[in-house]
Design a protein around this nucleic acid. Sequence first.
DNA 1: CTAGTTGCAAAGAGTTTGCATGGCG
DNA 2: CGCCATGCAAACTCTTTGCAACTAG
Lengths: 137, 137
Amino acid sequence: MKVYSTKQRKSLSDYLLSHRDEEMTAAEIAAALRGEGISLSAVYRNLASLEEEGLVQRITRAGDRKIFFRFSGAEECREHIHLRCRKCGKTFHMDAGTTDLLDETVAENCGFKMDRAETVINGVCGDCEKAEQTSKK
Amino acid sequence: MKVYSTKQRKSLSDYLLSHRDEEMTAAEIAAALRGEGISLSAVYRNLASLEEEGLVQRITRAGDRKIFFRFSGAEECREHIHLRCRKCGKTFHMDAGTTDLLDETVAENCGFKMDRAETVINGVCGDCEKAEQTSKK
DNA sequence: CTAGTTGCAAAGAGTTTGCATGGCG
DNA sequence: CGCCATGCAAACTCTTTGCAACTAG
């Protein structure tokens, strides 16, 4: 099946590209794009096709029953493992060296070939960790 | 708020315990427990409270728009990183040594404190990797 | 011109909630 | 007994789908 390049698909791609690594719901994306003339259904349909291409992932958050989408299509993003802080919600890129190291370690010790683009490590980032330490009397 | 120990909550806990690391939808769980006398709403309510306690996580799969729940409450499970194969869907436990190693590596190189129980590395397991190699002419 | 895409509205699926009843402590 | 939990059904929210109109190639 051929894929046409429509105005709507382009708005969506542009938007996702400029918000890479952010987690957004379909409704939020549609709202942000209101004015660009793209309907909610088109957002869903295009997200689904991007997901099939592996450029977008679905994410869930503990306690929050919504589904978020995250764009990781840029080459730059696909080469890193993502570190997601559960305190501040930000996502960081693991540096290339560490990523390679982990990749090799897991492959050697576990015989498991990890998928960088789709792996997200949850935890607490340095800043929040510090904040946590100091606030705890 | 106090928590009562009811027959339904017990059935659910027992079921989850004996299916740790499996990914199941609320409907599947309710279906498996039909006969135990637990309603779908009770399943949802109890899963939500288990999620708040951090014993259960919500999972999404690429291409599949359902939400799956995974029990990882057992101590044993919380100490490992989980490796999930996107081919066969199975989840494996990373051995303790490698888990510690990764944990330290990420902490030192990235200043990030990972959360073992909530981290799932996606990829392809050894068996599926082999199968893939041979099938590809 | 043909086939993929869009918007809208309706249909569906999954999840949550209100309320009366039942059960734990 | 008091309060939390359960069932059932209604209410909702989010997502998908049907269809006619539209547009890229």
